[in-house]
Structures are given as C-alpha cells and as structure tokens.
Design a protein around this nucleic acid. Structure first.
Lengths: 339, 339
DNA sequence: CCGCACCATGTAAACGATTACATCGCGGCT
DNA sequence: AGCCGCGATGTAATCGTTTACATGGTGCGG
C-alpha cells in the first residue's frame, strides 16, 4: 500500500486539508507549517494519487494522441513537437498509434475519451462523423492533416497544396515544361492536395504538360513509376514525386535504366526525409516541419482547454530545399550538407 | 457534465451496482436485464470515468514510457513495439520523452509514478539509484539498454557486444586484418559494449590489429574519423563504425579523398538504418530490431504486473546484413534491396 | 473590557466507480 | 406447509483527493 495524504497529515500532526493546501501552494498556510509539511511529504516519498485528483478536479493533465500507422521520422518528429508543448504546461501524452481501420480508430477514441483532457487526432479514418459518434461532445479535439470540411473541430495541416505548387513553379523556372507527377493514392488527403497544387501551378503555365502516375507512397511504387517514365515516347523533362520515398524509388529505376539524373531528367520529392540529401544526386524536395505541426496542434488544444477559442492561425508552409536532382545550378554545399 | 453510471441506472430503473455488474460482464445478471442496460448505456453514450475506476481498482490500465531525446526511426520503432504489446492487453501508453538530464528524468519519473501501472525506462541517466529515489517501490519497472548491474530491476538490451563481435568476425573472414573502429562516446553504454565486442573478436585473431577512434554517433564525427583514417600511414583494411550515421560520414570523407569503398577499404556500420541500403556502395551493417526490444520490454512488464516474476529471457541479437561496402562478394540483390 | 473580523486550520461532503454484504423472492425438499 | 438456500438485485462503504464550510483563537478598535 502506498503512502497517501492521510499518512502525511498524521505524521505532520495536521489535517489532510492542510496538507493539500500546503502542497498545492494555496494561500492561508503558515510559512513554517508549509515547510514542515513539505519536509514530511518528501521524507515519506508522498506522491499524490493521480486518479483521485482527477476524479475531483475533472482534469487528467493528459493529452491524448490518436495516430495512424506511422513509420519512421514522421512519427517521432510529430511526437516530439507535441511533447514539447505538453511538457511546457505540465501535461502528459497518452498515445494510441497504429490504427489501420476506422473500426480501430473508433475503439481508440472511446478508450481514450475518459482519460484525457483533450485529443490530438491524425487519422485518415477520423472524419467529423466518426468523432461525433465516438466522443463525448465535451472532449476538445484538434485534427491534423485531415480532409477539410470538418467545421466543428479545429484543424491543422501542412500546406500540401502550396508546397506542391512551389515545387512545380521551381521546376518550371528551371526550364522544364513536360512534367510527370508520381501521385499518392486517391484516398489520401495529403496526396490529393499535393496533386491539386501541381495542377494549379501548371495551369499558370500555358505550354506546360502534365502526366500523372499513381503510386502509394512506397519506394517500390516509385520504382515502378520510374520504369514507366523511362519507357515513355515523349519522356518528361522533370519528375515530381508526391513523397521522397517514391522519388528515391524512381531514382533507382532511372539509374538502372541508364537515365542520368539530373542530366537527362530532373527529379524532385516531398518531405525532406534525412535520406534525401544522402543519395546521388542529392534530392531536391519540400521540407515539411512535422515537429512544428505537432507542437502547434498541441498548443491549439491547450489553448482550447484554457477557454481560448480562437481557431489556429494559419498552417505550416513547407520549405523548398534545392539540391542537385532538379537540374538547377547546384548550391554550394558539401556532400554531407551540414546545416 | 458528462453522463455517469447513475444516469444509466436511473434510466434503466436499476441500481448502480447492477449497471456496473452488467457492463463489466460479471455473472449474476439476467440476460434480458444485461441487454437492456447495455442498450441504455450506448443510447446515453455512457463512458466509464477512468479516474474513478482507477481509484477503486488501483489499476490505471496504462504503461508509462520514459525515453531520452530520441530522433528518427529508433524512437518510432521502439514505440511501435511497445504499443503492439500494450494494445494486446488493452493497455495504454503514457510517454514522456526528451529527457536530456538526470534532473529531467527524475521529474518525469515522479510525475508518471502515480499514473501508471508500470514503467518502461530507457535513459542514460536512469540507474538503480535514481530510480529507487524517485519511484515508490511498488511500481514495476523494466529498464532498456541500460548499464548492467541494476540488479533489482528487469533489464532488456540489444546484444551490442555480440553484434559487434559478429561484424568483426565477418570482416576477418573477408580477409581484413588491420581494422579501425570508430567508437561512440565513452559515457555511452551501447558504445562501450560494441567496442568490447570488437576487442573480443580481435583477440581471437593473432595477426589482427585494432585502432580505435572516438566519435559521438553523429555523421559529422564519422566524417572527421574518415578523414583521419584516410591520412594514416598504415591505412586500415576495414573500418567498423559503431553506428550507421558515423559509417556514412566516414564514407563521404573517403569519397571526397578519392578512396574507394570497398575496393581500397572496407566499411561497416551498426543499426541498419533505412538509409544504409541506399548509399553507394550499400552499407554492410548489423540490423537491430528495435521494435522487438520495445515489444519484449512491454511484455516483460505486463508479465510482472500479472505476477509472473520470471526475468526476461535473453536479449535481442542483431542480424548481420551483408551488402557491398565490406568487400565480400556482393549478394544478389537489386539496388532497391526489396525485402 | 468586550466584541468583531480575520486568518489558520479542521471537518466533512463531494467526485464516479467497484464490490462486500444485506435483502428479497422463489422453488424444492422434508 | 415451512424452511433453507440460492440467485438476482439493492445498499452502502470505499478508494485519495480537493474544497466549501465550520470552528476557534488572536489582535485590534471602540
């Protein structure tokens, strides 16, 4: 049995109320007494029982995060950002990851709903309907990278559309006109936004041509797309993959086929995964700041908890990272690209 | 105000006790009544209040994870493994990451101690003393990748020593005799274990020679080491870096200096980060299964919670991944190295 | 010198669940 | 027919904390 506030009270010869007040920094406790109580508490290794406290205060000091199956860098960066914000406010992070289906997401939603003060949700399956159905309306929620139109919830996202547009404009500026896009799956929100950005950028350019191939964000699908591109009669001058992994797959396919990047064809990706600058040639890409997305989402949620009901300001803008794969004059960097 | 068990009881014309029994699948509730209560509960969107439940059951259904500042793949894999095990037992994961100092780790330990049923700790700062001082003795704890000798706690680790030995044996088998090791910092447990493995493997080989350089696991320190190696009078025949990032740094340094890998010098790393198979030449390395480490640690903890007090069986053995950088006959793989 | 206000501290009621124990009704056995 | 036992349900104690309210002592003003 662990030590409770009663033990501290007994040991210090005061009532539990006084202990509570002393330890929580309330006014109206003599300085000397507070000191004595503190001393006793640490001597006894007293730790308040979180559940009991939550029960009465209706606060859990915990933020819940519902995430899809995330691999690699993305996941850790996102968590890191959320953690930074949470820690600042002495909040904890309860995570529930690896949700492959709407069913699983709903379960997670229900399971977490009672244990957290608010929820950070990133899930392809989480639309407004699912949330409404599985959450008590009282749980503040912030959505990340979700399909728009979920008006009732605060939503944050990477500016996929703007990022893709920026990249295509850069490719156009490099003189490329026939552009192939290796897009992501149609069901994916990020993927569609990026494709939309590409279309918009090209619609500004009268003599631009676009051919769209579908991938699934995997390296392998990029490889397949690369083989196909290399076989084309009118080969595109530039390839823009919806993420770096597909860009790398494509790069290998082109290498295997003896097509040189960037001499014969330009190539660009999206995400700036660490690997991007290590391949030859280093990959031009859009850097997205995942940690910032997580941090902002957490901050927004925390704001909501505090009663601040201003919707989140703006969305994260990816940054164009020009390396050698796109055929623009290489910027002066060492191979290792130190920051 | 959210809906409580009382509301359900009132609506179903029964007592709270019956509702509790019905919903928790206890015996002694009529089938019909149970059905009615279930129906009312879902209609009212009743969700049990986790804190209230924890208060009386003394279980939080939550595992705490204390992690250091972890970037990248490692973090997400570890979490994924822990999540898999936790989810199987309907447990949640409360994470507290980014602890740079012993002070911070201690804070996190204290903050989490009341909110979880058990703790998974990976931290360079968490030795037995720190834990004992900041945790109620009742909290079951499993340590990961920590310095040995923390007898009171269950401990799991990657077999760094065995992995390093395996790699050096492979290098020896390839015919290399003068071997340079780019080690990690002396303060790091993993680093020292790997170094020890190297020494042990070489002590079996009469004509083996070892030169040790120190790095700090960063790419940059690998780069510096590479420059140094390339300048050596009696250049080593093989370089073994304590992790892949340093191996890559070294590779770039050698490239810049015009030393060809593996023709002029062999190179190997440790970790098998995704990038390892994308560089040219693809990097020979030891694959460590982080997810498995996390999963095992979680399982061990869960076992302890269930009263099962057998110490964890064995430790994760890294797997030798032979690619082209070590100068052994390349195995037949495509550039993309599909699994 | 009395009384009032105020401040430090104590008492006890919540919070929402679980569960030991009490109760009630019914059927079967003697 | 009466009693016993058992199965279904209700009553209330309990977990550890916070906090509204009660209490009591002290100092100050009239």
């Amino acid at each position: 049995m662990s030590v409770t506030i009663k033990d501290v009270a007994r040991e210090a010869n005061v009532s539990v109320a006084t202990v509570s007040r002393a330890l929580n920094g309330h006014a109206n406790v003599t300085h000397a007494l507070r000191g004595r109580i503190r001393e006793v508490a640490t001597r006894l290794r007293y730790m308040p029982h979180g559940a009991a406290r939550s029960l009465i205060t209706r606060r859990t000091q915990t933020l819940g995060a519902i995430l899809p199956d995330l691999y690699g860098e993305f996941f850790s960066e996102l968590m890191r950002g959320m953690d930074v914000a949470a820690r600042e406010h002495n909040l904890h992070l309860l995570v529930s990851s690896s949700h492959g289906s709407a069913e699983e997401t709903a379960d997670a939603l229900r399971a977490l709903s009672g244990r957290v003060d608010g929820l950070l949700v990133m899930s392809p399956h989480a639309d407004a309907a699912l949330l409404a159905q599985n959450l008590p309306p009282a749980v503040p929620t912030v959505l990340m990278n979700t399909r728009a139109g979920d008006g009732d919830y605060h939503t944050l996202a990477i500016d996929n559309h703007g990022g893709a547009r920026t990249m295509v404009r850069h490719l156009l500026a490099c003189g490329h006109r026939r552009i192939a896009m290796i897009a992501g799956p149609e069901s994916n929100f990020d993927a569609e936004e990026r494709l939309r950005g590409v279309r918009d950028a090209l619609s500004d350019q009268a003599d631009g041509e676009l051919v769209v191939l579908r991938g699934d964000f995997s390296e392998k699908s990029g490889y397949m797309a690369g083989l196909e591109i290399q076989r084309m009669a009118r080969r595109p001058q530039a390839v823009f993959a919806a993420n770096d992994m597909m860009a790398l797959g494509c790069l290998f396919a082109l290498n295997v086929a003896g097509v040189s990047v960037p001499r014969d064809i330009a190539l660009a990706g999206f995400d700036d995964i660490p690997m991007a600058r290590f391949v030859t040639p280093p990959l031009t890409t859009m850097r997205v700041n995942i940690a910032e997305l997580g941090e902002r989402a957490a901050r927004t949620l925390i704001g909501t908890l505090a009663g601040d009901d201003t919707p989140p300001r703006g969305i994260g803008a990816p940054e164009l990272i020009i390396r050698e794969s796109c055929g623009s004059p290489p910027s002066r960097r060492t191979a290792a690209d130190p920051r």
